[in-house]
């Protein structure tokens, strides 16, 4: 219990911000995906840190759920990437802009 909780918070915030930056700035859809995973990871880290901080287990259970959802999301997301690539021959998110109003 030597490491102050704030340090974990700081680390988590930095990782999260990197994830955000990746989503906002990178154009490759797989990188974008990984950035999202990075954000999940940052959140998970904070969960576990707080669980430890509060001497509880619920945070860990939560992480478990987050991971499951992330796994599901990756499965579907990568399938979407495949579908996108198949129809547009690209992995660039900017090329998929049919939602344009």
């Amino acid at each position: 219990m030597d490491v102050p909780i704030q340090y974990y918070g700081l680390l988590s915030a930095l990782l999260f911000s990197m994830g955000v930056a990746g989503v906002l700035l990178r154009r490759n859809i797989i990188i974008v995906f990984m950035s999202i995973e990075l954000m999940f990871n940052a959140a998970n880290l904070l969960f576990v840190a707080f669980a430890r901080h509060q001497n509880g287990l619920d945070g860990q259970v939560f992480v478990f759920f987050v991971m499951t959802v992330a796994a599901a999301e990756v499965a579907v997301g990568l399938a979407l990437v495949m579908a996108l690539f198949r129809s547009k021959q690209t992995t660039d998110v900017d090329d998929a802009s049919t939602l344009k109003g």
């Binding site: 955000v20 989503v23 906002l24 700035l25 154009r27 998110v93 998929a96 109003g101």
Partner: peptide, 16 residues
């Protein structure tokens, strides 16, 4: 409708 660019990253920006 001008707001709707159709670019995912743009939407992410708005989310932020």
């Amino acid at each position: 409708r001008q707001v709707q660019t159709g670019y995912v990253r743009n939407y992410a920006l708005w989310m932020l």
